[in-house]
Amino acid sequence: MDKRPTVGLFVTCLVDTQRPNIGFAAVQLLEQAGCEVVVPTQQTCCGQPAWNSGDDASSRVLAQQTITAFEGFDYVVLPSGSCAGTLVKHYPEMFADDPTWLAKAGDLAGRTHELLSFLCDVLQVELSPVVFNETATYHDSCSGLRELGIKEQPRHLLANTTTLTLDEMEDTDTCCGFGGTFCVKYPDISERMVDDKLSLASQTGARVLLGGDLGCLMNLAGRASRLGLPLRVFHTAEVLAGMADGAGIAGKESK
């Protein structure tokens, strides 16, 4: 019998601090799929904010830290397309002139997957059924979509695992205005973009908004909550793991 694959879970800094429930959902799903999950405590942030700010030196230090923390696992999995994209696409760019680290970055990139596409494409797992009798709409986060090709995987998993009805909004693949530091550097423009997105989401019959990247979801949920919109926001992993029974992101515990 094959031994269980080992998965290093890179929980991402936002999930770690803002929404641990997503981390627990990821562990549950990966274990359900037969993986042995380890959460290395040397992980901090993948370095994307530094990379996108043009601070290459800091990006490389954080990338080396991450590469070292995740040595030896069969797979490295992240509940975020944007952070996974950093490991897969940008770490190799960071070490273009450094053959030793380029090789290590390439090795990590080959083992790294975003959670939902890992479950769907790599493990091709059938998850335990989940009752979630809601109508939901889906926001495709840009990095996952365009850097890693994540589009059908979450929809496939939701359709095969849960009882939810998906009511797609128009322009589901348009940016929500988060953009990492963009949303605090250009808050006015970001606000317009998130309002446009929420208005499209509200035009559907959905009362639940799902996605695969906490940055975007915090932006959407934070704005929806400020506007008092009746929209509960969850990471797809929370729904798939049957852990979306509590409050949505930025929501009150007793809903």
Partner: peptide, 24 residues
Amino acid sequence: VSAWTKSRNLPTSGNNRTFISEYT
């Protein structure tokens, strides 16, 4: 983080610890 809270609420986790501390 006023640039964030100017137009959005900042979600809080409801947990007293980070995921990693809690999980560990």
